[in-house]
Amino acid sequence: MNSTEQLLSINNLHTGFRIKDTYFDAVDGVSISLKRNEILAVVGESGCGKSTLATSIIGLHDHNKTRVEGEIIYKGINLAKLDEEKFNKIRGEEIGMIFQDPLSALNPLMRIGDQIEEGLAFHTKMSKEQREKRVFELLDQVGISNPKRIAKQFPHQLSGGMRQRVIIAIAISCKPNIIIADEPTTALDVTIQAQILDLLKDLQAETGAGIVLITHDLGVVAEVADRVAVMYAGQIIEEASVEELFANPLHPYTRSLFNSIPQMNSENEKLQVIQGIVPSLTNLPRTGCRFSARIPWISEGMHEENPTMHEVSPGHLVRCTCWQHFHFESEEGGITR
């Protein structure tokens, strides 16, 4: 098992939703790869397309209303073009998913044990006894202290943190190579969040799986991720290793985001505000730098006409050239380059 083995590579992915007979791309030309043993965090605000990216990878879209174009290469197969029947063999077995809201992701009428067993029964040839043993193993692995009792309970009898552990147990039940975690801790308290993140990290170290972590919380990213991709309006605008991105953010959007976190500022200072709002899917500008509308004090000429990703230093990619000329509005006139 090579540690730098490429698990997943996404090339120029477009995922569009149909609104009144026109397709609008929520994910607009995303290229990214995931290596074994790596936690790749995808960060962005609501509506930037990060969850759409996740559901595209695992193929949960309704094909009548969505258009998925481009390549999602896993083991030489393009998942974007795979038919449903073949996808069912990959989903759950090779790629697992952890959902945001653990209560709505679990079936309220099924016992916990049966829900974990379901995937095993579908993907493996284990006997009933083996499966039962594996369920207890899994519950133990995710840190549930009394697996035999919990397996017989229903979801509503568990706390939020326990439910999320069960979801994780389901996701890792078939030892997948890739785990997609879509906001796994957003619905949880901070103490539980810390436990779940530690658990994810430990599990990954054990199994060597690659994790795509979708989140909006930069604190979570700083705690667990290895590499980070920042998304804005359907595109990745910056990609770097976690140390590099937090030490040296370049894109105006990334820098603005960092400055709007309360705990990094001193208490009485004003928080940085990003002007305007995230453009909605239907009136998204499809040409030029998509962030330009929110930094109007940077002149037009500083942006690229068709922004592409530029490698600034090894492994650190930034879209558009506007970052070279960017300064915050409050520093107006301070820097003129």
């Binding site: 901070v190 604190g219 979570v220 705690e223 705990q263």
Partner: peptide
Amino acid sequence: LLSAIPDVNPVGR
């Protein structure tokens, strides 16, 4: 509670 808050800094995690 305080120890559980994620710090926005990957150094020293």
